[in-house]
Design a protein around this nucleic acid. Structure first.
Lengths: 137, 137
DNA sequence: TTAGTAAAGCAACTGAGTTGCATTAAGTAT
DNA sequence: ATACTTAATGCAACTCAGTTGCTTTACTAA
């Protein structure tokens, strides 16, 4: 049997990649690339935005990071959390972001969709917008 | 009692505004501004993209049109349909878009969120991505 | 007819994300 | 250790959706 170690290249452990994962793991909310770049600077790590985009792309392919979309044109990134799939509560006033896990998630709805529309759901985006506890006052 | 007609300015009925509403009403799926511009051209109506953006903004404020976000950086527009609030099934292969109305929508979930997180949900985005009937073959 | 104002046009700009290519450096083999 | 391979990085130029400021056009009302 041939050695197939080289068929799937292994990503290298570089300072930027490490720092990127550390930043994402220490932040509770999904970050834009701008926010990530700023966080890298704060850690005295200089990185080009192209590099950040490419690292995020690679981390995404390795299921370490997922993309999140809110109501603006920025893509946000957070650590992938397969076990506790969650959504977000985005405050329209103070922009705070909380995680929320729906009791039954949407699997039931997705099964209904498959049955009624013959549409096989592979992914969904669900985000809530409104007012957080503080901003309701 | 003073005449207050001028306090809330009434939008003018212009050819572009009319054509825009006609295009949106005859299309089943949410359209990008590019697609709208193309559709206007097909109707022999020349319009600047700035004008289209401003008309869409105005229609949005008048609750005639809503924005829809999929998984790319384009904002899409469709006629607002307050009665039958719906979501979309976006085929990742052929890009077809179907409307779907969830049996219980998310009002129940939103009430739970208010109770548990003290977060007042004003709006939500929910879109499904997957394979349509044809593309599953 | 004229004054006031909404709508439209135009050009220049913004900012997120991409691409091509040259250079650097991590991991591996000698 | 040293050299080699190739992934990772940097950089500049680009794309493209959407925005802004300002001027011109066209309704509307007195």
């Amino acid at each position: 049997m041939p050695n197939n170690k080289k068929i799937i290249p292994k990503e290298r452990v570089t300072p930027i990649r490490t720092a990127l994962l550390e930043i994402l793991s220490k932040t509770k909310k999904p970050l834009t690339t701008q926010e990530i770049l700023t966080a890298l600077l704060k850690k005295k790590i200089s990185a080009n935005k192209t590099t950040v985009y490419r690292q995020l792309e690679s981390l995404k392919e390795n299921h370490l990071v997922t993309e999140v979309y809110f109501n603006d044109r920025n893509t946000r990134y957070e650590l992938e959390d397969e076990k506790t799939h969650h959504h977000h509560l985005v405050c329209l006033k103070c922009k705070k972001v909380e995680d929320v896990t729906l009791p039954e998630d949407l699997h039931h709805q997705e099964k209904l969709v498959l049955k009624k529309n013959k549409f096989k759901v592979l992914q969904h985006f669900l985000e809530f917008f409104g007012l957080c506890k503080n901003c309701q006052k």
